[in-house]
Write a protein that binds this DNA or RNA. Structure first.
Length: 263
DNA sequence: TTTACTGTTAGGAC
DNA sequence: TGTCCTAACAGTAA
């Protein structure tokens, strides 16, 4: 379930279990329609070790000083796990990095929207994709500037990886819920106070989820994440949760306390 | 059997 | 030129 916090949890799992081990080989699962490193790219990595990780938004990188980076994007349903080679394999494993000593890194991807590729220069990659600043590292002024010149819905703006990298559907809804902003509100009509509130809540949401390693069960029951269904009681007022489509994505919100900008 | 889905992106509309 | 929106991608689960 990969938005920024889920990707950060994945990065931490890789950093904890897959660094400083010599790469012995790779295994491919059922890989039609999945973007993976070519055979010659895989050969380049054999005998080397990963020594560091990076993450920008939803993009995860594993690499070594002077060597190429393995870029991992989890797509809509991807996940990674460090396992013992002897452990029973999970379903939908598309790609496995096998390390010396019986450890391996599994990339699972049921819906095949994820991808793995070799990248020489992470900063150039980020520039090439035109990604915005990482959502957790963006400054107040930069956030206000980007939101202030967006004419579309605020929800769509939050989801645009070119404006800020890392927000996804769930945590965008959660941030707007806490901020009392209707997801359909035109971004450039929000007062600077409301933009500042939104930025504060957005960071709070992402950081709190990062702190639980994206274990949703550890998040407070009052969070929208536990009430994403039509007709649930709002946990912040007397309203009722409803849903609508904004920018082509389902948005859960409370019409009583989440309001737009009045004329 | 039908419908929805946590991400990205090409192509078209404005 | 730029910004925004929609549909499509593939597979599963409710």
């Amino acid at each position: 379930m990969p938005e920024l916090p889920e990707c950060e949890a994945a990065r931490k799992r890789i950093a904890a279990g897959a660094l400083n081990r010599t790469i012995e080989g790779f295994a491919l699962g059922e890989v039609s329609h999945v973007e993976l490193p070519t055979e010659s790219e895989r050969k380049r990595l054999i005998g080397t070790q990963f020594t560091r990780t990076r993450r920008h938004g939803k993009y995860i990188f594993v690499g070594s000083v002077g060597g190429p980076w393995l870029h991992i994007h989890l797509g809509m349903s991807g996940s990674v796990r460090v396992m013992d080679t002897a452990d029973p394999p999970a379903d939908y494993v598309r790609f496995t990095v096998e390390f010396e000593g019986g450890t391996c890194l599994h990339f699972r991807d049921p819906r095949k929207f994820g991808r793995i590729e070799l990248v020489e220069d992470v900063d150039a990659f980020i520039a090439d994709k035109e990604l915005g600043p990482d959502a957790l590292e963006m400054g107040d002024n930069a956030f206000a500037e980007v939101i202030g010149k967006t004419r579309g819905a605020i929800k769509s703006a939050l989801l645009s990886q070119k404006k800020l990298a890392g927000m996804g559907n769930l945590w965008a809804d959660e941030s707007l819920y806490r901020s009392g902003i209707d997801p359909e509100t035109r971004a450039d009509t929000l007062s600077s106070d409301r933009v500042q509130t939104l930025h504060k809540e957005l960071r709070h949401v992402l950081q709190a989820v990062v702190d639980t390693d994206a274990e949703y069960g550890q998040l407070p029951d009052a969070w929208l994440i536990h009430h994403r269904s039509d007709g649930d009681a709002c946990t912040r007022c007397d309203g009722t949760i409803s849903k609508k489509t904004v920018g082509g994505r389902t948005s859960y919100f409370c019409p009583d306390h989440q309001v737009g900008t009045s004329q």
